[in-house]
Design a protein around this nucleic acid. Structure first.
Lengths: 341, 341
DNA sequence: CTGAAAGCGCTTACAG
DNA sequence: CTGAAAGCGCTTACAG
């Protein structure tokens, strides 16, 4: 590692390009950074030299000089299993990646534990290694993110749990309205005994969806006692469904706060010999690929996950440019009717 | 962004620590980097100063000075859907993360397209932004990885497609032997018309597994004509199963090159009213979480994915230390008997 | 064991 | 529009 490999050319520096083009380093730096104050012919000469030498600016040197790392952290306070298990995240990441594609920023994935990030992650995030951060799947009770938000620009995927404490940048959907819509769909279909499988109550999105269910069910004058919480995994959806069935074997509709949980719920329904949507109609939330990969295609509340990812990236980029974008971007949901309700 | 935020302290530098401790910068640098040539009391004084000031070394400055980035790229030549859709990757990533936990390296995720990495990714990887790379899910026909391997230390997850062209570092299992074992299990169970759902033939692991199936089936004197390829997704497993059934409605066993594809295959089997393993016995490969999340728990060939990820990290770390670890680490597979065969 | 000095490859005012 | 100079915060020989 220490000795020069044969055939391993040393990377050309700004200095070399300057010499090749017959100009000063300042000038090369200007063209590399797209400054407008460069005469056309000089610009051409420098660009030619850059191509000839195959020059790529040294990131570390640049960072040191201008105090920008050109890196963005994607912080996901979930264990690996949850992160990889839910297609919702795949779409978010896809969107973020797309939104960053034409920028010079690179994405650094930081998987943290749901309770608290590791010492290493904290040091990394607070140690000036990234210019900004996107945090998705935020849980309550972690003061770290408040610190982070005070240190570098951060945008949240989903309204963070304590919005009243300080104003955050986030992109989200109106979870309560979406959930109410999904529940209303069940009501309109004539269901009268409607349960919900809610998400974890330390996540704002989950809380809001539960709220939406309550609202719809109460407005319709129906009972609101059938609420069981899961943690957004398929297994937890199944477990919740079992409990619900035990509490009321005659329920005829269930609004589930995520497609993945809905998939789990449906499998137990079928195990019990109940038909979907015949005996029990099921409405999910997300419209992720989980909605169509199971045995029964899910009727669900669609949220534009990919676009949300793009929005997050765009918002952070704007923040990084020193602009003041709208702090709260709430995107629309809509019903997608398929086979489960 | 440009003006100093109120309350935003400037990060303390090495210089500041040196002043605080009453020593030179060189000395502080030595203790930060764990050099042994420091007297006990000086070491104590410096560490105290570091704690007092809450000093975190500046990465960019360090990188610039010693030409190390302390970053490792995880390159996955798959689209986001595939990467997030297969729990196998989750376990690999988990292992890699664990293996890097106690090092000072950070992981940079680079999702590339299966055919060729983007211009941005290439520039990033070749532009001295990472000290090494781990590439998983390597497909054939991409000369880029040869270039990459010649530029920085890289370890492959799975033997790369053209091992004869140059010697790579990799960690893998004996895919052929594992597949033969899985197929043999079917044979021993009395199955006589055994098909395979193979992986894409531009991936070495897939090729090897197909090879193992051929070997077992031929040695048993059985027909070897029922081979259909999928691309490791659940949907492709289902499609392959349909084609297989069309080619021979009476097949009684199938070895599937991945659990995810096996899950897809089983769902069509059941749709057709065939019982598993009664009518058709199914053996998967991976023993990922997909093996136990479906309707029928998979009998499958286990590969130690998480450990493999750890090995990859360990191997790369050794390479980065300038050591010469074994270039090829082949880990054991074993049968896991559950309900599908 | 410790320090002074040079240097890593850029950017950024400051002149002109 | 262009260049000379200083500086970003470290590490690395080189002396001592």
């Amino acid at each position: 590692m220490t000795l020069e490999m044969p055939g391993r050319r040393v990377a050309p520096t700004l200095e070399a390009v300057a010499a090749e083009a017959g100009v000063s380093r300042s000038t090369v730096s200007r063209v590399v950074n797209g400054s407008s104050h460069v005469s056309p012919d000089v610009l051409a000469a420098v660009n030619a030299a850059i191509d000839r030498l195959n020059y790529i600016p040294n990131r570390a040197a640049r960072s040191l000089a201008n105090r920008q790392t050109m890196a963005i952290a994607l912080v996901v306070p979930e264990d690996t299993g949850r992160f990889f298990g839910d297609p919702f995240f795949a779409e978010i990441v896809q969107g973020i990646t797309a939104g960053l594609e034409h920028s010079d920023y690179v994405l650094n994935l930081q998987l943290a534990s749901p309770t608290a990030p590791s010492e290493k992650t904290i040091k990394y995030l607070l140690g000036g290694n990234v210019d900004g951060a996107i945090v998705v799947s935020h849980h309550s009770g972690d003061a770290f993110f408040t610190t982070l938000d005070a240190t570098i620009p951060v945008v949240f995927g989903g309204r963070p749990y304590h919005p009243e404490l300080h104003r955050n940048n986030y992109v989200d959907v109106d979870n309560a309205a979406g959930a109410a819509m999904g529940t209303q769909y069940l009501i309109d279909a004539g269901r009268r005994r409607i349960a919900t499988i809610a998400g974890p109550d330390n996540m704002q999105a989950a809380i809001d969806r539960t709220e939406g269910w309550y609202r719809a069910v109460r407005e319709a004058g129906l009972a609101d006692d059938l609420c069981v919480h899961g943690d957004f995994t398929m297994a937890s959806g199944a477990a919740a469904m079992r409990e619900l069935l035990q509490r009321d074997p005659h329920l005829d509709g269930v609004f589930v706060a995520s497609d993945l949980m809905a998939t789990g719920a449906i499998s137990v329904l079928r195990d019990r010999g109940l038909t979907v949507p015949g005996d029990v109609a099921v409405v999910g939330f997300d419209d992720s690929s989980a909605a169509t990969s199971g045995e029964i295609r899910l009727t669900t509340v669609h949220q534009p996950s990919r676009e949300m990812g793009e929005e997050m990236a765009g918002m952070l980029l704007a923040l990084l440019r020193g602009e003041s974008p709208e702090r709260e971007r709430v995107m629309p949901t809509r019903m997608v009717i398929r086979d489960s309700a």
